[in-house]
């Protein structure tokens, strides 16, 4: 197991959300779950907490998260991840799904 946390610069979340959180994915082999919550501080940072069963890939994780924080206005959100060996492309997909659910708040 490896655990780490870091906040990334990101422009503030634009839309008002109906629900304070969104979840995407499940903890299964080669998969992960992403919990995205609003109300994090400061409003120009995306706060990330990662717990993964596969140690040694911190650099890839930080790159994937920084990339997402750069591309989406996710400032003021808190991302918590439980991972069971998901590839980086899936990490990005789940982040986008969670973000989508949060913004649309229909799930």
């Amino acid at each position: 197991m490896e655990k780490f946390a870091k906040a990334f610069p990101s422009s503030p979340l634009q839309a008002k959300t109906a629900k304070p959180w969104a979840l995407a994915g499940v903890v299964g082999s080669g998969n992960l779950e992403v919990l995205l919550e609003v109300g994090g501080r400061p409003s120009d940072r995306m706060e990330c907490h990662v717990e993964t069963s596969i140690p040694g890939y911190k650099a890839s994780w930080l790159a994937a998260l920084a990339d997402f924080a750069h591309n989406y206005p996710a400032g003021g959100t808190k991302v918590t991840i439980n991972d069971q060996g998901a590839p980086p492309v899936l990490v990005n997909l789940r982040l986008r799904q969670a973000y989508d659910h949060l913004i649309k708040s229909n799930k």
Partner: peptide, 10 residues
Amino acid sequence: LGQLGIPVSF
């Protein structure tokens, strides 16, 4: 689960 090196779920 954490003690056994298995990820937990929310």
